[in-house]
Design a binder for these strands. Structure first.
Length: 233
DNA sequence: AATCGGCTCAACCGCTATTGT
DNA sequence: GACAATAGCGGTTGAGCCGAT
């Protein structure tokens, strides 16, 4: 259908970004905002496609990105969120302040997946694989009961979201200035929990603000209880 | 010192979802 | 409602790094 090709083949640069390109992109976004990514490269004097610019910005140049090693808390949060959400990296990223979905995805594939396999846990189902000792079984049973509890919450949450979405259609609720419709289930407590996560690793401050970013488009807000339950571990 | 293999992560690719006309 | 344009997502790739031999 109307999908545009990734990049028009004609003379657009690919591959690693140079500091000069980064500077151009940063300077442009600083001055004008990104606006339409499609139009941005030519306006900013970049020989890149808009998609490449967007990716560079969201995964690397954004000022609200924390780089470097994942803390233990972040690691645990990813494991638990992955158990619930699966490979929905952007959804997981919404609960990890300053981390991009790409970064989380990479970390999962290179570290956490292997770690779980080593521990005898299936990284897809998060259930123990065959040939495990009793200790593993006990631990996983605890985990499974928590997960089934969380699954119930997820069902309830989805139903509530659907209901509210219908209500919004009938009687639209004024949204925030960014125009983004906040999920009613996204709570300040959840936000605080995420801040707690960031704080543990020494980069507190705030959640990624509205604006660009991979996590911005969809809000997979969770009820307080679920996040509380996660983050107690 | 050379080279080989594994690991990491930035970036690409192809797809779907959303928005605008 | 149909179509086009754009944004966003998740899987995959490959260059570069680093430790082992």
């Amino acid at each position: 259908m109307g999908r545009s090709p990734y990049c028009d083949s004609s003379g657009l640069k690919k591959g690693p970004w140079t500091p000069e390109e980064d500077h151009k992109l940063l300077a442009y976004i600083h001055q004008h905002g990104h606006g339409s990514w499609r139009a941005l490269p030519s306006k900013a004097g970049l020989e890149r496609c808009g998609k490449s610019c967007r990716l560079r910005w969201t995964n690397y140049l954004r000022p609200d990105i924390k780089r470097g090693k994942f803390s233990l808390q972040e690691e645990q949060a990813i494991e638990q969120l992955h158990a619930l959400l699966g490979n929905r990296w952007s959804a997981i990223a919404t609960h990890l302040p300053k981390r991009t979905d790409n970064e989380i995805k990479n970390y999962w594939n290179t570290h956490l997946k292997k770690k779980l396999i080593k521990m005898g846990i299936d990284p897809i189902t998060h259930k123990p694989m065959k040939n495990n000792n009793e200790e593993m079984k006990v631990k996983s049973n605890m985990n499974n009961s928590t997960l089934s509890h969380m699954a119930q919450w997820e069902t309830a949450r989805l139903e509530a979201e659907e209901r509210l979405a219908r209500q919004h259609k009938i009687q639209p609720i004024p949204s925030s200035s960014s125009g983004r419709v906040e999920s009613p289930t996204t709570s300040s407590t959840a936000t605080e929990n995420c801040q707690h996560l960031a704080g543990e690793s020494g980069v507190a401050d705030d959640l990624p603000s509205s604006g660009s970013g991979s996590a911005e488009s969809k809000n997979y807000g969770w009820p307080d209880t679920i996040l509380d339950e996660f983050l107690r571990f």
